[in-house]
Amino acid sequence: MDARKEGLLLKTLFSDQHPQVRKWLVPFILACSFYFLLWIPEDQPSWVSALVKCLPILCLVVFLWAVTPGRSSSWLLQGALVCSAVGDACLIWPEAFLYGMAAFSAAHLFYLRAFGLSPLQPGLLLYIMLASLIYCSFLLPHLEPDMVLPVLAYGLILSSMLWRSLVRGGSAGWGGVLFTISDGVLAWNAFIRSLPFARHVIMTTYYAAQLLLILSGLRNPGLKTH
């Protein structure tokens, strides 16, 4: 489905004909607002801050459960969101950074499976890998030796998810791009140089990315409307 057709579909889904879609997105919007309003300092890690950070993603899990039938694509997207929530919680504590990367790697693999491998479009993958290598050339000199392989592995999985999301197109493509921007800013801020308003950029693009990625799951017919 091309972006124009998906835009028409999403416009229909958010119309009065499908009140459940708008209704079940309200908790996500409120949870995002709650996160930015509280803005718990990053140097105060706690289970409360982890819950506040994960809550928007958990709301999206409930959203998919409420508005889509129990088909494989919905379960895969929900799996991606659950793994993302685990990753969010791990990143609250610096010592759990590698566990967070592992959880987000699993999330991207769920997205990969949901988006499929057809059509293949290997040329697009080559462009993405080239851009990823250029970015890594700046990043790798700043990494500790024991972080090089995990970061490279995560970058490969993220690039693969971006590839498949762009091939799928529409909201999935934009979601993949925003997720990549969020992770790119996070890595630059963590390993190379502190950036102004980095956390604002990281979390805004991250929440928007997750929303757009799961909206791609609304392409299929059979939404619950009552």
Rank of each mutant, 00 (worst) to 15 (best):
R4D: 15
R4I: 15
G7W: 03
L8T: 12
T12G: 15
T12N: 15
F14W: 10
S15P: 04
S15D: 06
H18T: 07
P19I: 05
P19G: 10
Q20V: 08
R22S: 13
W24R: 10
A31N: 09
C32P: 03
F36L: 01
W39F: 13
I40Y: 04
P41C: 02
D43R: 10
P45T: 06
S46Y: 07
S46K: 01
W47Y: 14
V48Q: 14
S49R: 12
K53M: 00
C54E: 12
C54A: 15
P56Q: 06
L58S: 11
C59Y: 02
L60S: 05
V61H: 08
V62Q: 13
W65V: 07
V67S: 03
G70W: 12
S73P: 09
L77F: 09
A80N: 06
V82G: 05
A85L: 06
I92E: 11
W93G: 07
P94H: 08
P94Y: 07
L98N: 12
L98Y: 10
G100H: 00
A102I: 04
S105H: 09
S105P: 05
A107P: 03
H108D: 04
Y111V: 03
Y111D: 04
L117P: 02
P119K: 10
Q121M: 13
P122V: 04
P122K: 10
L125C: 09
L126Y: 13
Y127P: 08
A131D: 04
A131Y: 09
S132H: 11
S132E: 10
L133Q: 13
L133P: 00
I134A: 12
Y135K: 11
C136A: 15
C136P: 05
P141E: 07
H142F: 09
L143Y: 00
D146W: 12
D146E: 14
D146M: 12
D146L: 14
V148A: 09
L152Y: 07
L152A: 09
A153P: 05
A153V: 14
A153F: 15
A153H: 14
G155N: 13
S160M: 14
S160I: 01
R164V: 00
S165H: 02
G169A: 05
G170A: 04
L178M: 08
F179P: 04
T180V: 07
I181A: 03
D183Q: 02
D183A: 07
D183P: 02
V185W: 05
A187Y: 01
A187K: 01
N189S: 10
I192C: 08
I192P: 00
L195Y: 10
F197L: 12
F197S: 11
I202V: 12
Y206C: 03
Y207V: 04
Y207R: 07
A208C: 14
A208M: 13
I214D: 00
L215E: 05
L215A: 00
L218W: 02
G222F: 02
G222L: 04
H226A: 13
